[in-house]
């Protein structure tokens, strides 16, 4: 069950503020890092929405991210449509794919669900990879960015683009939190904790799960739209399963089922990667050891661990 606790609000605000400050004060590369974190954070929020609150651990969120990016790229670079139409089509495409996967895989659970989503994701990857119309493995370039000059934002400026991405993270988080607090969200949590009971109450569980998966996919698609505008180039690598794997790592690292944790997890993983990467080519090794250590230390994720400490302290104070 989701509660927008003060700690969650504080965590999201602190991480976003710190990143914004980093982008404003840092040079060019910090802004690239902030954008990378923002994209990963949106994906992580969208995955945590279904995995943490709906029990649907997906290994196709990378593919959905790619579908969003490709739909936006195709509409602007090939179709010549304006960015607003392209955004709507990309969100719809991601949501439709999510609805399909969610509906078909609704009765599959546990590791089998992970594998089923992997299968659908890989199918999408192969289709894009083989598609000559979408440029195949050469990818697509010539993608337009939003024109927000009317409200004084220059999207071609790296700082303003980075801040825009951070704003989308907040919007995605707020949207996910809003849905989770609604009746729909409470029902989703109910299905997660006991699907049979919810069925007995007369609920069509699979339909509910499919809609939830579709909503989550729409958020992932939004991240894809930003990714396409960021590099102004899309290639099939966006859809590969290892992208989904990285998102899953971020969610678990930040704290599964905390919604705020994954945002912190995204910042932590990306910063760690770049800081270690500056010293050694073998940054995978250090990240790997870090992941192992993080789980061995308690496995609640960074945010989850902080929440746990605070709760324990509160408990001790209550005892005293």
């Amino acid at each position: 069950m989701f509660h927008q606790t003060p700690l969650k609000t504080f965590t999201v605000a602190a991480v976003i503020a710190a990143l914004a400050l980093y982008a404003i004060l840092g040079g060019y590369f910090p802004r690239e890092i902030v954008i990378e974190i923002a994209l990963l954070a949106i994906l992580a929020v969208s995955l945590d929405f279904v995995a943490g609150y709906g029990g649907m651990v997906s290994l196709c969120h990378g593919a959905i991210y790619g579908i969003g990016a490709y739909a936006f790229a195709g509409m602007t670079a090939i179709g010549g449509y304006d960015t607003v139409t392209a955004t709507l089509v990309a969100l719809a495409a991601a949501a439709a794919f999510g609805l399909f996967v969610g509906a078909v895989a609704a009765n599959i659970t546990g590791i089998f669900f992970i594998m089923a989503t992997l299968a659908f994701g890989q199918m999408a990857y192969v289709v894009v990879f083989e598609s000559r119309a979408l440029g195949g493995d050469d990818g697509l370039s010539g993608i337009a960015r939003y024109d927000l000059s009317a409200i004084g934002i220059d999207m071609n400026d790296s700082l303003q683009f980075a801040l825009f991405c951070l704003a989308v993270v907040v919007i995605a988080y707020a949207a996910a939190a809003y849905v989770l607090r609604s009746t729909f969200g409470r029902t989703l949590s109910g299905i997660h904790s006991n699907e049979d009971r919810m069925r007995a109450l007369g609920l069509t569980a699979w339909r509910h799960k499919a809609v939830a998966f579709s909503f989550s996919s729409m958020l992932a698609g939004a991240a894809g739209i930003l990714a396409a505008q960021h590099t102004q180039f899309v290639s099939p690598e966006l859809l590969v399963w290892t992208v989904s794997g990285e998102v899953l790592i971020v969610v678990i690292l930040g704290g599964l089922g905390t919604l705020a944790g994954p945002i912190a997890g995204a910042a932590l993983l990306v910063l760690l990667k770049h800081k270690i990467g500056a010293y050694t080519e073998h940054w995978h090794l250090v990240i790997g050891l870090f992941l192992v250590a993080a789980v061995m230390a308690g496995g609640r994720g960074v945010y989850g661990q902080i929440e746990y400490w605070l709760r324990q302290r509160a408990g001790r104070r209550a005892d005293a």
Partner: peptide
């Protein structure tokens, strides 16, 4: 990886202000 390559190329040009770039193994 294409997205990483773009980010690093931008970093080299905009932050390090290099006079030339060399490399690129993958066509993507």
């Amino acid at each position: 990886k294409p997205p990483v390559g773009v980010a690093k190329a931008r970093k080299l040009v905009l932050q390090d202000e290099v006079d030339a770039m060399v490399g690129i193994v993958s066509s993507a």
